[in-house]
Amino acid sequence: MKRSKPRLAVFKFASCDGCQLTLLDCEDELLAVAGQVDIAYFPEASRAMAPGPYDLALVEGSITTPHDAERILQVRRRARVLVTIGACATAGGIQALRNFADVAEYARAVYPRPEYLETLAWSTPVSSHVPVDLELRGCPIDKGQLLEVISAYLAGRRPNLRRTSVCTECKARGTTCLLVAGGVPCLGPVTQAGCGALCPSYDRGCYGCFGPAESPNPPALAGRLAELGRGPDEVERLFRTFNAWAEAFRGGGRPA
């Protein structure tokens, strides 16, 4: 007897939608995905909004409002397996820069009537609010990794997601180290692999969009960047982008 297909749901919190677009961007594999799972809730792609519970929930975005903080509890209750996708959901995203500043001041600068705004002082990852079964890193996430997570879920196996540094991917593809051969500031040595070392292959230092690697040492890298003549402000800005609130990057290169 054929089992019924697992039900997939995609939820969005504070985010740019880029990560859930990665699912639509699967193109060649999208039909295969649709063939294996029942896409029950995916507002970005379909009007169908079937109620839960869901077998697999992909959650994009960070928690930035009191409403979000309530809603993520409901999502968790309706999801058997909850996978957070992207830097916002796993680390608070670029909007977590508010965590280093005064959000009320920001609101006054941006909105004519800030009193209409109901927001939290912090942008936090989903894991700060509910238990998360798996975190998929990236800004945006990698399509291959997303398919791997779905395939692994369907097969009932652990997904193959490496936690080594981006350097391991540069070396595997034969990209010359920008930091060593060019003195280019690069977060590769402290950032988790998964992107295939995309930026360095285009002569750009790693922005750290996959967040901290399994055992990062930001102070050592920051020290080296200082030796190469990079000022403390520049080094801090390097760490404070998409994963600014990730614990290892939070200190801006100083010990967390």
């Binding site: 080594t164 540094s165 350097c167 070396k171 595997a172 055992s215 990062p216 040492n217």
Partner: peptide
């Protein structure tokens, strides 16, 4: 260990 990035560049090359 204070200086090591554990990035595996050494073992790769």
């Amino acid at each position: 260990a204070e200086r090591c990035l554990a990035c595996a560049n050494c073992t790769s090359v």
